[in-house]
């Protein structure tokens, strides 16, 4: 068993996958805490569908680097969704359902009308559920992923106190002069970046699992915002690492293996939380 592992790790693309996987898991769990607490979990889900649609467009247009298109479109939608979510008159959840289902249908249609390869079903499947086996990334993608992840982590650490304030009580934060609009804008942008990054790893249907599970698991056990955030990051990294290794060992799809690991961790955390009361 370990032979397979050591043998696999000799390949650069396997090492890339591990690095990228761990970084994405770290970023998504940090923002996941905010998303879950702000009751925005569904936004992550909606956005991943939007990213799928955008990716289909990029593929049809024939862009070499699909992120050039998927990133701005997803960011734009994230901002629109957060905005509408705050306006009580427009039903935020209905708007998200509309956009996400629309983008999914639109993307699938595009990929069928303008097939870019002979295996459309396989393409669709891997963009929805992630690569069948270990993901293959180019060096540029790896570098881009590392840079974006570092930016996300730094932004999170620097804005940590403000993020807490705006998540716990937006009215109070606004009343005492915190720029809540700007912060929500930053949160929306960062979420969009993470979704697009994570989509490569686990596919667009499974992205929100990466975002919400570590946060929910940490919330079962820990009782302060800081400890929840830290534990959720550690847990997420651990699960992503374990998931990727397991997928190599047992030759399973990487995305769903990571998600299953996250779910297992959630169950364990729930039990621990119950026992501790």
């Amino acid at each position: 068993m370990f032979d397979i592992l050591i043998e696999s790790l000799a390949y650069p693309f396997v090492r890339y996958a591990l690095i990228v996987g761990v970084l994405i898991a770290l970023c998504s769990s940090l923002l996941g805490v905010i998303l879950v607490l702000k009751r925005f979990s569904y936004i992550g889900d909606g956005l991943s569908h939007v990213a799928f649609g955008a990716m289909a467009i990029a593929a049809v247009v024939g862009l070499a680097d699909q992120m050039v298109l998927t990133l701005p479109i997803t960011i734009l939608c994230a901002i629109l969704l957060l905005w509408s979510g705050q306006n009580a008159k427009i039903k935020g959840d209905a708007a998200i359902a509309m956009i996400s289902v629309g983008a999914l249908a639109f993307g699938y249609l595009l990929m069928n009308i303008f097939p870019t390869s002979s295996n459309v079903a396989g393409d669709v499947c891997s963009s929805l559920f992630g690569s069948m086996k270990i993901l293959t990334l180019t060096k540029t993608e790896v570098v881009l992923c590392i840079v974006l992840s570092i930016v996300v982590v730094i932004a999170f650490v620097l804005l940590y106190n403000r993020f807490f304030a705006v998540t716990f009580d937006e009215s109070f934060a606004k009343a005492v002069g915190t720029k809540t609009r700007l912060l929500n804008f930053v949160i929306a942008t960062v979420i969009a970046v993470i979704i697009v990054l994570a989509m490569n790893l686990v596919g667009s249907l499974l992205v929100s699992a990466l975002v919400i599970f570590p946060a929910l698991s940490a919330m079962r056990i820990f009782k302060s915002f800081k400890s929840v955030t830290v534990f959720s990051a550690i847990l997420s990294v651990f699960c992503a690492f374990t998931g990727i290794i397991l997928s190599i060992l047992f030759n399973t799809p990487v995305g769903s293996t990571i998600v299953i690991t996250d779910i297992a961790a959630f169950v364990i955390c729930s039990v621990i939380g119950k026992i501790r009361g």
């Binding site: 106190n161 403000r162 716990f168 009580d169 005492v176 820990f222």
Partner: peptide, 23 residues
């Protein structure tokens, strides 16, 4: 708000966030 009902935050974290205007 409903959000606060199950928010994992320590008392100190919440009180300290009152100082955000001095940030």
């Amino acid at each position: 708000t409903i959000v606060q009902k199950d928010f994992p935050a320590s008392v100190y974290e919440v009180v300290l966030s009152g100082c955000q205007n001095s940030l």
